[in-house]
Simulated scan of single mutants.
Amino acid sequence: MNLSSCALALGLVVFSGAVLAGERPHLVKVADLPKWWVVAHADDAQVPPNGKNLTAPTCAAVSFRINRGGAIGDVKLEKIVPEGDLSQVAVSSIRALHYVAAAQNVGKDPVYTYQILLFNAPDVKANPGLFAEKQRIYDQCKLEDFKLPASLM
């Protein structure tokens, strides 16, 4: 291989890496995420031994990007109700996820989405009459105006 061929090959590798690194993810609604990516496994989240509102019924909305390989990035706590140290657990829980592409996501396209996590919510399997209360807690963390951050456009 001559010098100009090496330079061309190196240029293509650098260019393709730059394109992939700057690739704009699809904005995906919470309900549509399983059409794109599914959880392969989750590592343990980090839970503080004590703190503020650790036992209160809580919802947390955490946004994140799923890259082509299923790795998580750009994790951000968007909202937590009520405020407290479960925010650390919410972010840690999302960072602990590992995804694989869904059958429809043949190109393993990256996405930007969010999840709502519930902590200390009523157990509706044990008491179906508490469904409305669990839904009320969940609804507090819906992000109606969720969009791609400028850094990912």
Rank of each mutant, 00 (worst) to 15 (best):
M1A: 13
M1I: 10
L3M: 11
L3N: 14
C6I: 12
L10Y: 13
L12N: 09
L12T: 09
V13M: 08
V13G: 06
V14Q: 14
F15S: 10
S16M: 04
G17K: 12
G17W: 06
V19N: 13
V19K: 15
A21E: 10
E23D: 06
E23Y: 13
E23I: 03
E23P: 00
R24P: 00
R24L: 00
P25D: 06
H26R: 15
H26I: 06
V28L: 04
V28G: 04
V28D: 03
K29D: 10
V30Y: 15
V30R: 15
A31T: 09
D32F: 01
P34T: 04
P34I: 03
K35C: 00
W36Y: 15
W36H: 14
W36E: 10
V38W: 08
V39C: 03
H41E: 12
D43S: 14
D43C: 02
A45G: 03
A45Q: 09
Q46N: 06
Q46M: 06
P48Q: 10
N53R: 11
L54Y: 07
L54V: 02
T55D: 15
T55G: 10
T55H: 13
T55R: 15
P57S: 14
P57H: 13
P57C: 11
T58K: 08
C59M: 04
C59R: 11
A61H: 09
A61M: 05
V62D: 10
S63F: 10
S63I: 03
I66R: 11
N67W: 05
R68A: 05
G69F: 08
G70C: 01
G70W: 03
A71I: 02
I72H: 01
G73H: 03
V75H: 01
K76N: 08
K76C: 01
E78I: 05
E78T: 01
I80E: 10
I80S: 09
V81L: 06
P82T: 07
D85G: 08
S87M: 02
S87V: 02
Q88T: 11
Q88G: 12
A90H: 09
I94Y: 10
R95S: 06
R95A: 08
R95W: 04
R95G: 01
L97Y: 10
V100E: 13
V100L: 09
A101Q: 07
A101H: 07
A103K: 15
Q104C: 00
N105A: 11
V106A: 15
G107W: 08
G107S: 11
D109N: 09
P110M: 07
Y112C: 06
T113G: 07
Y114C: 03
L117W: 07
L117R: 15
L118K: 12
F119S: 04
N120M: 06
N120A: 05
A121T: 02
P122D: 08
D123I: 05
D123W: 11
V124Y: 06
K125N: 13
A126W: 03
N127E: 12
N127S: 09
N127M: 04
P128T: 05
G129Q: 15
A132D: 13
K134L: 08
Q135D: 12
Q135Y: 11
Q140L: 08
Q140V: 01
K142D: 00
L143R: 15
E144P: 00
D145K: 15
D145N: 14
K147H: 09
K147C: 00
A150R: 13
L152E: 01
